[in-house]
């Protein structure tokens, strides 16, 4: 099985480094714009909910964090798998750099959900399937991060981490479908179900802005992390020396 040639070029560190400078800047700008629109829409423009009043506004950070916690894990596991099979350094770097961001999103989803649950459900925490499986996701991220620092050799660490990430991928559908498979305290999906989303348009639009803001936030901060790692990996190559302005004089 071979990867297409353009993908190999994409995976070439120097090419990716230059590209990422541009992408992370633009993703950052879009992210800030989306955050401003989403926060203004969600906190000011959107009306209070008919049952939950203003407390439903926690949704605007809870839902995007929860979605991103799953999305980032998928990226981490797939990149890890690609790194494992084709030994592409860049895929290993992407997987490793995603872990702290994904762990942050998972943490946010759990904490904001807990703060939301106290006034609405009447409890900070319950051991229902959705909450428990999301907590397991946080432990998977933390296990992955611990594994990365446990090995001296980065490439060995990347392989070990990829296997952990691939094993943990089984948790992702469980988190997603937990509210449908079992009777949980957590309510069912609002937007991702197949028929019409059960949220009023005036409340949905700010949510979509926030979702987009979180996604671009991930892209932008991921690429900054990836660049540092590329520099460390590739520090002996001529393009890095040239980039850092150290080549003058040596020849």
């Amino acid at each position: 099985m071979y990867l297409p040639k353009w993908l190999h070029q994409f995976g070439a560190p120097k090419y990716f480094y230059d590209l990422s400078l541009c992408i992370s800047r633009w993703a950052g700008i879009i992210c800030i714009i989306c955050f401003i629109c989403g926060l203004y829409g969600g906190l000011v423009l959107a009306p209070a909910d008919y049952q939950q009043g203003d407390s439903f506004r926690i949704m605007y950070i809870h839902v995007p964090s929860a979605w991103m916690s799953l999305f980032v894990y998928m990226v981490m596991a797939i990149a890890g798998g690609i790194g494992l099979i084709w030994r592409i350094k860049l895929a290993e770097i992407v997987a490793r750099s995603s872990a702290p961001i994904g762990a942050s999103f998972t943490f946010l989803a759990l904490v904001t959900g807990s703060i939301w649950g106290k006034p609405m459900w009447g409890t900070w925490w319950v051991w229902d399937a959705r909450l428990t499986s999301e907590l397991i996701l946080l432990f998977l991220y933390l296990g992955y991060i611990a594994l990365q620092s446990a090995f001296e050799d980065r490439r060995v660490a990347a392989r070990a981490g990829a296997i952990l990430a691939l094993v943990g991928i089984v948790n992702i559908p469980i988190i997603h479908y937990s509210v449908e498979w079992w009777s949980t305290l957590h309510q069912g999906p609002t937007i991702t179900k197949l028929d019409k989303p059960s949220i009023h348009l005036s409340m949905l639009i700010p949510l979509l802005f926030m979702v987009f803001a979180f996604k671009t936030f991930y892209i932008s901060t991921l690429l900054i992390r990836v660049r540092s790692e590329i520099l460390e990996y590739e520090c002996n190559t001529s393009w890095v020396k040239q980039l850092l302005g150290i080549n003058n004089g040596i020849k």
């Binding site: 008919y50 009447g122 059960s198 009023h200």
Partner: peptide
């Protein structure tokens, strides 16, 4: 010993609900 509220997945402004 404990009563928890389970809310549904529907969100709308009070006027719309009314």
């Amino acid at each position: 010993d404990e009563v928890l509220a389970k809310h549904d997945e529907n969100y709308m402004p009070p006027e719309v609900a009314q």
